[in-house]
Computed example of a mutant assay.
Amino acid sequence: MERKGSKAYDEEAFFQEFMKRRYRTDSPNLSIEKPALLQLIGNPKGWTVLDLGCGDASLGLDLLEQGCTSYLGIEGSNKMFEEAIRVLETTNGKIELSSMEYYSYPPEAFDLAVSELAIHYAEDIETLFQSIFQTLKPGGRLVFSVQHPLLTSSFTSSESGKSRSSWVVDDYFHSGKRVENWMGEQVVKYHRSIGEYFSSIVNAGFKIESLIEPKPDPQNFSNPEEYKRRMRIPLFLLFSCTK
Rank of each mutant, 00 (worst) to 15 (best):
T135I: 02
G67S: 09
Q66R: 13
D56N: 02
F144I: 01
Q186N: 14
Y197V: 07
F144P: 00
A122E: 06
E180M: 15
L211G: 02
P35V: 04
D111E: 12
N203V: 07
T90V: 11
F14A: 10
Q130C: 09
E2G: 09
E185P: 07
E2N: 14
L238F: 05
N29G: 15
L136T: 00
G5D: 05
S240Q: 08
Y121H: 05
N92R: 07
M1I: 13
K189A: 12
L37S: 06
N181C: 13
T69Q: 15
E82V: 12
K189Y: 10
I119K: 03
E185I: 13
E96R: 10
L30T: 07
E17W: 10
W47F: 06
S131K: 14
A8Y: 02
D10V: 09
G205F: 00
I212M: 04
K45V: 05
E33K: 08
V114I: 12
V49R: 03
N223G: 04
P28V: 13
M80D: 07
L136S: 01
I212H: 01
T127E: 11
D170S: 15
E75N: 11
V202I: 11
C68D: 04
S115C: 07
G176M: 10
K177I: 12
T135Y: 00
E33F: 06
E213D: 03
V168S: 13
A122H: 03
Y23T: 13
K79Y: 09
Q16G: 10
I119E: 03
D62M: 07
S99Q: 02
Q147Y: 02
F155R: 10
D51K: 00
L63H: 00
N203W: 03
S240G: 10
S153V: 04
L150Y: 01
D171I: 13
G176T: 08
L52E: 00
M80N: 08
P224C: 08
G53I: 00
L52D: 00
Y71A: 06
A84Y: 02
D170C: 14
A57L: 01
S166V: 11
Y197N: 06
G176E: 08
L142S: 02
F173I: 11
I95R: 02
K243Y: 04
S166R: 13
W167R: 10
K7T: 15
Q147V: 08
V114M: 07
A84F: 03
D56M: 01
Q16S: 14
L151A: 04
R3V: 13
G73R: 12
E12P: 14
K94F: 03
R141N: 05
N223E: 07
C54P: 00
